[in-house]
């Protein structure tokens, strides 16, 4: 509907992925395996989240400390061994998670709020008013044509550091959030109760807040979850490329630094690789199941 872009994804961490609901692991399997499995699954997620957030406090060594010689295999003081600088791999991994999650969360919060506002306002303005589409949706469509990694790099060139990274990731998620919000709201706006509210002359604020938002909130949250998957990917990628003001222990950075010595100390590579993969998969599964649930609300 809006421009020449089909709603296909721009990145592997994509929007509105159809799944069919079979074999999607713990996420959508919750309905099949009963509430106990669901609790166990959410409990596991919460524990993981807590572990990542408290990681820096739990780490035995600081992110710059070098408790041993480089490339030492696992030993008493360093259960996963040391990396090329002699830093404790376990401590580094524990230090790296918190900035990853918090940066991603902040960026997604900003991007989703912007995107959802643009999408909702456009949908509410109706199909016949072109102005909001021209001013809001078209620029976002243009932005969506750039692969997110490149958009992040472009913005980091002009605006280096954490601020640039957060701005960039927020911007990368905005177009898709806007489209999801627009699509969800468009369905709701045509419902008879919303039309009845328009026909009795309710204000735009009330229309949006009382009639539309409660019905699309689920879809918006599910979308924010998918956006968060993308954000985790982008933060890790920025760390991996060494841009965006990454901290010493950034998981992406740990991976790139461990690559040359991978044959000497495979654990220094394996640990951050598994950490990123686990977080990405967990976030994706959670977003997937949230998406399934939000689609049931209006059915």
């Amino acid at each position: 509907m809006s421009g020449g872009i089909p709603t296909a994804p721009m990145s592997p961490t994509a929007p509105t992925a159809p799944t069919g609901g079979i074999g999607t692991g713990g996420g959508s399997g919750t309905s099949r395996t009963g509430p106990r499995a669901a609790y166990a699954w959410w409990g596991l997620c919460a524990t993981g989240l807590l572990l990542i957030l408290l990681g820096p406090e739990l780490a035995p060594h600081g992110p710059t400390a070098t408790p041993g010689p480089p490339y030492r295999p696992p030993a008493a003081g360093a259960p996963l061994g040391t990396d090329h600088l002699g830093r404790d791999v376990l401590s580094m991994v524990l230090h790296g998670g918190r900035p990853l999650l918090l940066t991603g969360l902040l960026a997604v919060g900003i991007g989703s709020v912007f995107g959802a506002s643009a999408g909702l306002l456009t949908a509410l303005a109706g199909a016949r008013s072109r102005l909001p589409r021209m001013l809001l949706m078209r620029p976002l469509d243009a932005l969506a044509a750039v692969p997110p990694v490149l958009l992040v790099l472009l913005i980091l060139t002009a605006l280096p550091g954490r601020v640039g990274l957060i701005t960039a990731i927020a911007l990368a998620g905005t177009p898709l959030s806007a489209r999801v919000a627009y699509a969800a709201a468009e369905q709701v706006v045509g419902r008879a109760h919303v039309e009845a509210a328009i026909a009795r002359g309710e204000s735009r604020c009330r229309l949006l807040g009382r009639e539309v938002l409660p019905l699309v909130a689920g879809a918006l949250l599910a979308d924010a979850g998918i956006r968060f998957t993308g954000a985790v990917y982008l933060v890790a990628a920025a760390g991996f490329l060494g841009v965006g003001g990454s901290s010493d222990a950034d998981w992406g950075r740990l991976i790139v630094e461990a690559l040359p010595g991978a044959s000497l100390q495979p654990l220094a590579l394996l640990a951050p690789v598994l950490a990123v993969a686990l977080v990405a998969v967990t976030v994706n599964l959670a977003a997937d199941s949230a998406g399934h649930r939000s689609r049931k609300v209006l059915a």
């Binding site: 008879a192 039309e195 009845a196 026909a199 009639e211 609300v297």
Partner: peptide, 26 residues
């Protein structure tokens, strides 16, 4: 409809087709 006044809006009632979408589910 936004250009019609309160009396005019009150004078025309509408009942739409689909009962599933007629009311706000919440």
């Amino acid at each position: 409809v936004r250009g019609r006044d309160r009396r005019e809006r009150a004078a025309v009632g509408l009942v739409a087709q689909n009962p599933a979408e007629a009311l706000h589910p919440r």
